[in-house]
């Protein structure tokens, strides 16, 4: 009787484990690692990681040439998802990089001389303008990569954090200092 009970128990538990396992394996199954990594990157194309754009960095990670903590605009979220994806251990942003502050580029239109330099620097064509005429940034398309800042001869571009409005206000995680 005891043996029978035990056998029954083992069978039930085995079945349960097999069932749960089946569920887990179907969760993520990506054939192309580079694509999967690229999808986790913020696509700012800022090149701060040392590679020429997001995809080259993704390729470097897939080949094992680059670490997963070299993307400042992605921040901790990107490092976390890359860690999950590649199995590398979680680590803070590489020491030689500074974390990106949020914001979009804004051209001071009074000062702009229309030199086209920022337009050439923008990796996502988010700046419009013609020679000798004022330029402006398309706010919705700006990725905040800051690549337009150094070329500007008159330093008329600044990074601005848009004010809180109904579109992007955000519930914060409840803080519980005593228990953290």
């Amino acid at each position: 009787m005891a043996i029978l009970t035990l056998i029954l128990l083992v069978v039930i538990l085995l079945l349960a484990v097999v069932y749960l396992d089946r569920e887990d394996h179907t969760a993520s199954d990506d054939p192309l690692l580079v694509d999967a990594i690229n999808r986790q990157l913020p696509q700012t194309q800022c090149g701060e990681c040392g590679y020429d754009g997001c995809r080259p960095y993704a390729e470097a990670i897939a080949n094992g040439c680059a670490d997963i903590n070299r993307c400042p605009p992605g921040g901790d979220i990107t490092i976390q998802s890359l860690s999950r994806l590649t199995g590398h251990t979680l680590k803070p942003l590489a020491g030689d990089l500074t974390p990106t502050s949020e914001g979009v580029a804004v051209i001071d239109e009074d000062l702009c001389i229309g030199c086209l330099k920022c337009i050439r620097a923008c990796p996502v064509d988010a700046i419009v303008g013609a020679p000798k005429l004022m330029h402006t940034v398309i706010e919705s398309e700006c990725t905040g990569c800051k690549l337009c800042l150094p070329p500007c001869p008159v330093d008329c571009i600044s990074m601005v954090k848009p004010p809180l409005n109904l579109r992007d206000w955000h519930w914060a995680k409840p803080a519980n200092p005593l228990l953290e």
Binding site: P42, Q43, Q45, V124
Partner: peptide, 20 residues
């Protein structure tokens, strides 16, 4: 929702980058 927005923004940025 924010993550969804970020993902959409990233896809658009990538497309624009490739076009360029």
């Amino acid at each position: 929702a924010l993550e969804e927005q970020r993902r959409q923004g990233a896809t658009r940025a990538e497309q624009r980058f490739l076009n360029r």
